[in-house]
Design a protein around this nucleic acid. Sequence first.
DNA 1: TACTAATATAAGGTTGACCCAAAAACCGGG
DNA 2: CCCGGTTTTTGGGTCAACCTTATATTAGTA
Lengths: 223, 223
Amino acid sequence: MKHDSFHESAEMYLKTASELAGCNAPTPISTLAGRLGVSAVSATEMVHRLAEQGLLAHQPYRGISLTETGQQLADEVVRRHRLWECFLYERLGLPWHEVHDHACRLEHATTPAVTEALDAFLGHPVACPHGNPICGRAGAPAERPLSELPVGGTAVLVRVHPESESLLCYLAELDLLPGRRVTLREIAPYQGPLVLLTDVGVRYIGREAAAHVHIRLLTEDPA
Amino acid sequence: MKHDSFHESAEMYLKTASELAGCNAPTPISTLAGRLGVSAVSATEMVHRLAEQGLLAHQPYRGISLTETGQQLADEVVRRHRLWECFLYERLGLPWHEVHDHACRLEHATTPAVTEALDAFLGHPVACPHGNPICGRAGAPAERPLSELPVGGTAVLVRVHPESESLLCYLAELDLLPGRRVTLREIAPYQGPLVLLTDVGVRYIGREAAAHVHIRLLTEDPA
DNA sequence: TACTAATATAAGGTTGACCCAAAAACCGGG
DNA sequence: CCCGGTTTTTGGGTCAACCTTATATTAGTA
């Protein structure tokens, strides 16, 4: 017998599954595998193991979805992750785009007692530095990807969802952080970038990236 | 490719080897194995692997000792461990005797950037809550195990060295924490416990435990 | 010196998390 | 309804870290 519960890997699978579940219901295993950087075969194996433990359901050729228990576990991991991000960013002063990776390591080594104490220490924060909610489920009113903002509409950036260092870094460079107010002037032709007006200047952002940036709509049309 | 450097296990071996090295120069593998809770065979295997990587030297039938590099690695792990202990105890307010175990998990998931930032955040502490030094090598003036305090002598408890939750818990119960001033009244016969006078009352402590509590001598004889 | 207890090695197993290559099952478009 | 591309399964490997049960080696002591 090693650790009490399961390991880093399992937690990563659940966490990732949870992240992808937000998009379309049954996530194909290949997507999971891609995101985790493992082969489809390996992912399938692990999915089976997790399914046996009742953490997720696998409908062959359709995809996977988390069970109640699996979702809970995943939520805990995500919570730890975001709490650490808060700590690393707010208290330790590490750069915005770096905290994700450090938190990825810590999230698996955090006991429940530490999690709770950390949460209290940070004053029960409601969102990580990238705007992702910390406590209850996602929800929140009228939130959608930036890529769906209509031309002329104005919105506030609230979160960066499927996070990745390169994306975070890119956004930081553009100064497109949660809290920023943007207006979509136009979408360049041929799947071109979105042209955004912000109070720090004009910004261009690709559709791919924009799909990962979530906004809260302020107005549909220009003032 | 998995993690960049080596894994938790290797770090634990090095850390433990370093802890035991303080006592007698070449540590027998069996001692290492015992402390890590693995079989002697497993420990031997791992020792070979680590020796191949030049992290420690193994003299058959005599024991092991860390190389320069190995010692450095071990020191880094220990440093991370103690920094986390400080954080958990001072900032998160977790109990004195519990922080060790939580820190044991975190120490392997801490990137250099986080270590440095944490150190700064804590104001570059010089010792963990149990009194073990954080930065440079152990040293410090005139430090010895409580078990070597002469009868009648007075000393200050400075650190608990080979740490274990049960020991820490026991000491906490007795209120024998670093900073406490004690006078050895007598040693009960037949390898009996030490009888200590403290400003919180009389305390009895076994010789085993006393060997793990380090003191700084104040006076050799009663005032 | 010869013996015993500690130490080391050898041999063979297990488990988790990966990999590849190839075969089989499936789904949807033409 | 059939064919091609995606997905899954099958079979066979690797590697690290463990395990047990022997068998050898050695150090220290009687």
